[in-house]
Amino acid sequence: MEDLNLLKRKLDDMNVYDLFEYVKENYPENEELWIGSKKIIIRKILNFERNRMNEEDF
């Protein structure tokens, strides 16, 4: 959970252009993550990472 908090802080500190580039680079297969306001994109990324962590636990 700490990782998600660190990721959220990192994403919050980015400007919109840097956030867009970060998403394109790190999640190229998930184009739906690129769409929306900064707040929505950050929420989508955090949810995606949370789901990925839950899948790894099983």
Rank of each mutant, 00 (worst) to 15 (best):
R43M: 06
E2D: 14
D57W: 06
I45G: 09
N15I: 13
D18K: 14
L46H: 03
M53T: 01
W34D: 05
R9P: 02
L4F: 08
K39L: 07
L19G: 12
E55S: 00
L4C: 02
E31W: 08
R9D: 13
I41E: 07
P28C: 00
D3L: 11
E31K: 15
I41V: 14
E55Q: 01
R52N: 10
R50G: 01
R43A: 15
N47D: 02
I42E: 01
E49Y: 05
Y17R: 13
S37Q: 04
I41P: 07
M1T: 04
E55G: 02
L33Y: 04
V23N: 03
R52I: 01
W34H: 10
L33D: 10
K10Y: 11
M53S: 06
R50Q: 11
K44S: 01
M53F: 10
I35R: 15
Y27V: 04
L46S: 02
L46R: 07
L33F: 06
N15C: 12
D18R: 09
D12M: 14
I41K: 14
K38I: 05
E32Q: 07
Y22T: 07
R43H: 10
F48Q: 09
K39C: 03
K24W: 00
N47A: 09
L4S: 07
K10R: 13
E56W: 03
K8S: 14
R50H: 05
Y27H: 08
N54I: 09
Y17C: 05
N51Y: 00
L46F: 00
E56T: 02
M14R: 01
K24E: 13
Y17K: 14
L46E: 04
I35W: 09
P28Y: 01
L11K: 10
D13W: 06
F20T: 13
R9M: 09
E56L: 13
R43Y: 07
R52Q: 10
M53V: 00
Y17S: 12
R43F: 05
P28R: 00
F20C: 01
K24F: 03
E29W: 02
V16R: 08
F58I: 14
E31C: 10
E55I: 06
L11W: 12
E25K: 15
I45R: 05
K44R: 03
R9W: 11
N30I: 03
F20D: 13
V16S: 14
L11T: 12
L33W: 04
R50V: 02
K24A: 08
L46V: 02
E56M: 11
N5R: 08
I42M: 05
E32Y: 06
N51P: 00
K38T: 02
F20E: 12
E31H: 10
K38W: 03
D18V: 03
I41N: 11
W34C: 09
P28V: 00
Y22R: 12
M14H: 06
I41S: 05
K10L: 12
K10S: 12
R9C: 09
E56I: 04
M53E: 05
L7V: 03
K24C: 15
V16Q: 14
S37H: 11
R9S: 12
N54S: 11
N5A: 04
D13I: 00
V16W: 01
E49A: 06
E21G: 02
E31L: 15
N54H: 08
D12I: 14
K24R: 15
K38Q: 10
N26K: 14
F58R: 13
E25H: 11
I40N: 10
E2Q: 12
E25Q: 15
I45L: 12
